[in-house]
Design a protein around this nucleic acid. Structure first.
Length: 686
DNA sequence: TTAGGGTTAG
């Protein structure tokens, strides 16, 4: 709080106490936002605000890094009559420092209508271009700088070296660097960073060795550059030689080890660190998450909370993604609580992450609730919920939301259409799929990517339009990938077209000989067509190539713990109860008239009884039995499976949802199935 | 009245 002491009112020697003098004197001593707003109010009350100098000083105060209130700064700026170049520079700089580089560049365009920019303006806006990766705009500003005689200013030049380096235009960076009359450390460091970023580590090291003087940045950019290029050993050598290791270089090393999947060494460095910042924690968490080590990521998040550190949005993005990977819904709800407690806004990327976490954990209702609660929804939020509903097979709602989205003036982008096409595919909507595929191209001018083709081909294959699918594949401007051939193969299996199945399998094995799914589906297709000799051939091929079928694995969460079951598992402490539940299930299914569908049993079991027994031990059955035993009677049973659900498990789960009057949600390797009251949301297309 | 340009996660 600003203390209004008598000296503020009676400054010696006594000039006349005009509102201007009062304000100038107070503005100089002002340090906090509260003081600034008090002065702002005072200047409005006394009329001092109408003086452009007072208004400019007040504006600079709001933009000052210590106060940094961009909204107020902008608002005051608009009220300054003819703001001078200094005020413009301050405004642009504060936008760049507040991650609003796009606005900074737009403001720069306004500025040049009123003033010639100076050697303060250009480095700022060039940095903004670098942040945006807007090399073309940067190049134009470079040209402008040359035109107005700022081409040899060392700040302008080194900002250009940095901008070109960050945008991957290393030759231009080098050119500017070579033209510099006075190359200081900043210019050298930027260039080394540029060479390291584009993978030319040898040049980076050479430049580093040539330097007469180095500072901590020089060492750090080299350590980081080497780490990023996957040369973690060399990075460690430089790091070990580094005289005063700073926090950034430790963090860079951690990232290097994480990238190299050397978790032990990353962890070792982490525990050796005497001081850590939030980036250290984020690097560890993101590293674990990126490499699929979700439980370790969540464990570190728990430690962050225990140490009373404030997570950042970057922390939460990684953590939510780790939660999704494990489908640990209750942990996800806890993270959501932490976000609410710390007052994180959901208007940006965090809203998207939260929506994704919920639908990937099987709770589309919570995903929808988050979506509805976001005040200023952006395209990313609409897209996330559309993709989520699509994965949950809720095509009607997808199409309804798509309409709503467009009514709200939102322009769908390429991924929105991936979500829509995916929904059409899961719901078997072949005509609508064609309609939206064409709408995307004609109405929105979006070039279909391989993902769009993947969905579209899948739509056609599921609906049995196999010849049309084959034609679309032939007309694609890019090489079909394994997803596309896999769709055709699966479609051929579902619709019993062995000829097209053979054709698809041939291409699939060519593109991706290690795709296990290919052999499984192919084998299932031959099995269903009673071509057992071919089934054996496929098995031989798998053996020869060393391809093994991943064992089916299902997980279920109970009281914050994840329980994992593999096919035929007998390791769970509740095994006895689980198998006795399975016997009960078998009886109930039998009385409901269920006949086991053994057509997809890959094992060459001669005996029908053996085949049936194999099905009964499928991992999701064990998980469902566990859920029936342990979960509250009315709570949904949510299961995550690593493979595609087999035909028989699908029919069984439908029946069980009716027999036990339970909602069962199964996430397989590509989508969700909501089983309730004897039917599934996928309408038996999957 | 600005005090510039260079490093780590996402």
């Amino acid at each position: 709080m600003l203390q209004l002491t008598p000296s503020h009112f009676l400054p010696p020697p006594p000039p006349p106490l005009s509102p201007q003098n009062l304000s100038f004197s107070l503005l100089q001593s002002c340090k906090t936002l509260q003081e600034a707003t008090q002065l702002h109010a005072l200047s409005l009350k006394t009329g001092a605000f109408t003086n452009p100098l007072i208004a400019s000083r007040l504006f600079s105060l709001y933009a000052d890094p210590k106060i940094n209130h961009l909204t107020y700064a902008r608002s005051v700026f608009t009220q300054i009559q003819d703001p001078n170049l200094v005020s413009w520079n301050v405004l642009i700089k504060s936008h760049v420092t507040n991650q609003r580089s796009h606005d900074a560049v737009v403001l720069f365009r306004d500025l040049v209508r009123h003033h010639a920019p100076d050697n303060f303006t250009l480095p700022c806006v060039i940095k903004g271009c670098a942040r945006l990766n807007a090399v073309e705009e940067g190049r134009q500003i470079h040209g402008l700088g040359l035109k107005i005689g700022l081409g040899l200013d060392k700040f302008v030049q080194s900002s250009l070296v940095s901008m070109y380096s960050k945008c991957g235009e290393i030759e231009f960076a080098r050119k500017v660097f070579d033209e510099m009359r006075e190359r200081d450390l900043v210019a050298w460091n930027s260039l080394i960073d540029g060479y390291a970023r584009c993978g030319r580590v040898d040049v980076a090291v050479e430049l580093f060795d040539q330097m007469e003087e180095r500072d901590s940045f020089s060492w750090t950019v080299l350590v980081d550059g080497l780490s990023k290029c996957g040369n973690v050993e060399k990075a460690r050598e430089v790091f070990d030689r580094m005289p005063d290791k700073n926090l950034v270089s430790w963090n860079a090393m951690i990232n290097g080890y994480m990238k190299a999947r050397d978790f032990e060494t990353a962890r070792e460095l982490f525990s050796q660190m005497l001081t850590r910042d939030v980036i250290t924690w984020n690097s560890m968490i993101a590293g674990y998450e990126f490499n699929g080590r979700f439980a370790e990521a969540l464990e570190l998040f728990r430690e962050i909370l225990e140490e009373d550190l404030r997570p950042t949005p970057a922390t939460l993005v990684s953590v939510l993604s780790a939660v999704s990977g494990l489908a640990a819904l209750s942990k996800g709800r806890l993270v959501h609580c932490v976000m609410v407690k710390h007052g994180f806004e959901l208007d940006g990327v965090l809203g998207t992450s939260l929506i994704e976490m919920y639908y990937k954990c099987g709770s589309i209702d919570s995903a929808m609730a988050v979506f509805r609660g976001i005040q200023r929804k952006k395209v990313g939020h609409w897209t996330a919920i559309i993709v989520g509903l699509g994965m949950h097979g809720m095509a009607d709602q997808v199409l309804q939301l798509f309409l709503e989205m467009r009514k709200n003036g939102m322009e769908p982008h390429a991924i929105t259409f991936v979500g829509i096409l995916n929904a059409c595919s899961h719901a078997g909507l072949v005509d609508l799929g064609r309609y939206y595929f064409n709408m995307m191209i004609k109405d929105y001018g979006i070039e279909p990517t391989i993902e769009h083709y993947g969905c579209f081909v899948d739509i056609l294959c599921r609906a049995g339009c196999l010849d049309e699918a084959k034609n679309v594949i032939g007309s694609m401007p890019m090489k079909p990938n394994k997803v596309i051939w896999m769709s055709l193969l699966s479609g051929a299996r579902i619709h019993g077209n062995v000829e097209i199945g053979d054709y698809a399998a041939q291409h699939l094995i060519e593109v991706s000989p290690d795709t296990i799914g290919c052999y499984v589906v192919l084998s299932n297709m031959y099995a269903a067509a009673d071509q057992w000799e071919k089934v054996s051939q496929v098995r031989e091929m798998m053996k020869k190539r060393g391809v093994k079928k991943d064992p089916g694995c299902s997980t279920i969460e109970h009281r914050g713990m994840l329980h994992e079951f593999i096919v035929g598992d007998k390791s769970h402490p509740q095994t006895k109860e689980i198998y006795s539940k399975l016997s009960e299930v078998r009886e109930k299914l039998k009385s409901a008239g269920h006949v086991p569908d053994t057509s997809q049993v890959l094992l060459c079991l001669e005996d029908e009884k053996e085949k049936e027994a194999e099905l009964e031990n499928h991992s999701e059955r064990l998980a469902i039995a566990f859920g029936l035993i342990n979960l509250e009677p009315r709570s949904p049973i949510r299961i995550i499976k690593n493979l595609r659900v087999c035909n028989d498990c699908h029919s069984v789960t439908k029946l069980l949802s009716k027999i036990y009057n339970r909602e069962i949600v199964v996430r397989d390797n590509s989508r969700f199935h909501h089983f309730a009251n004897g039917s599934c949301s996928c309408k038996d297309f999957w």
